[in-house]
């Protein structure tokens, strides 16, 4: 008998603080698996955000930084410019990346900063108590949109992958989902490609991962997966928006 599935080496053996059924844990694992498979653990550096995943730098066993809210791409830029041979990735939520951190993410992508961004989009601010995020869907009820997000008042949700893929500096941009095993398989592939894009020095890479927040959505974990599939995927289509071959 041999282990065919076990904790990836890049992840620390400790319980995670996430709520039951929260898909952050799955995404963490996929990143760690990619790092292991590419054999870059010793040279990988993670920049953690502010939000639920503020503690992700505890779970990844590699060297790490804690950034302020939204600024992880700027911190990663500073690190990568000093250590161009190392693998630097940020892990950011939707409030962090698509609201307060829009300036940093857009310009990191525009500069073609050779970093990898894992962007976890669960359409809500989770840590702070379920407020409307820039990616909250129209009609979605949150603690700050008690009647559902209204276009007239709040505008429409931002599609970050589409936005960033039009920039010359971005080399690999994909949107994936972890709502079922097939989605997880594709998510893993995209995350690995993103790291490979960085390793080969082709430019900025980002994987947007559609994720659930059962607690703040007010659903069971299973219902949340279904809700993601039925509501998020139609608005946030999955797929690769930019691949390194398109980079001039």
């Amino acid at each position: 008998m041999r282990k065919v599935f076990a904790r990836p080496k890049s992840m620390k053996d400790m319980p995670m603080h996430y709520c039951p059924g929260c898909t952050h844990g799955i995404i963490h694992r996929l990143i760690a698996e990619a790092i292991d498979e590419l054999n870059v653990f010793e040279q990988t550096i993670v920049v953690a955000p502010v939000g639920c995943s503020v503690f992700c730098c505890d779970y990844f066993d590699c060297d790490a930084y804690g950034a302020s809210h939204g600024r992880a791409p700027a911190v990663a830029t500073g690190v990568k410019r000093v250590l161009p041979d190392k693998i630097v990735f940020t892990y950011q939520g939707d409030g962090d990346l698509a609201a307060i951190g829009t300036s940093e993410i857009v310009h990191a992508a525009a500069r073609g900063e050779k970093i990898t961004v894992i962007f976890v989009n669960n359409a809500i601010y989770a840590m702070t108590g379920g407020q409307m995020a820039p990616t909250t869907l129209l009609g979605q009820v949150t603690t700050t949109t008690p009647k559902g997000r209204e276009k007239e008042l709040n505008g429409s949700p931002i599609k970050m992958s589409e936005m960033l893929s039009v920039l010359d500096g971005s080399a690999y941009i994909a949107r994936v989902s972890v709502h079922n095993p097939a989605g997880i398989f594709k998510a893993k592939k995209a995350i690995k490609t993103a790291f490979e894009t960085q390793i080969s020095g082709k430019g900025f890479s980002m994987v947007e991962v559609l994720s659930t927040c059962p607690t703040n959505w007010g659903m069971t974990p299973l219902k949340a997966l279904k809700w993601l599939e039925e509501n998020m995927i139609p608005y946030y289509p999955l797929g690769e928006f930019k691949t390194p071959t398109e980079v001039v």
């Binding site: 844990g25 799955i26 398989f185």
Partner: peptide, 23 residues
């Protein structure tokens, strides 16, 4: 030993052992 359970688990609770090749 398909490991789908392990892949869906957000908390790395599950390990899979099998006699054949790694999946």
């Amino acid at each position: 030993g398909c490991a789908i359970c392990a892949r869906m688990c957000p908390d790395l609770v599950i390990e899979v052992e099998r006699e054949d090749k790694a999946i």
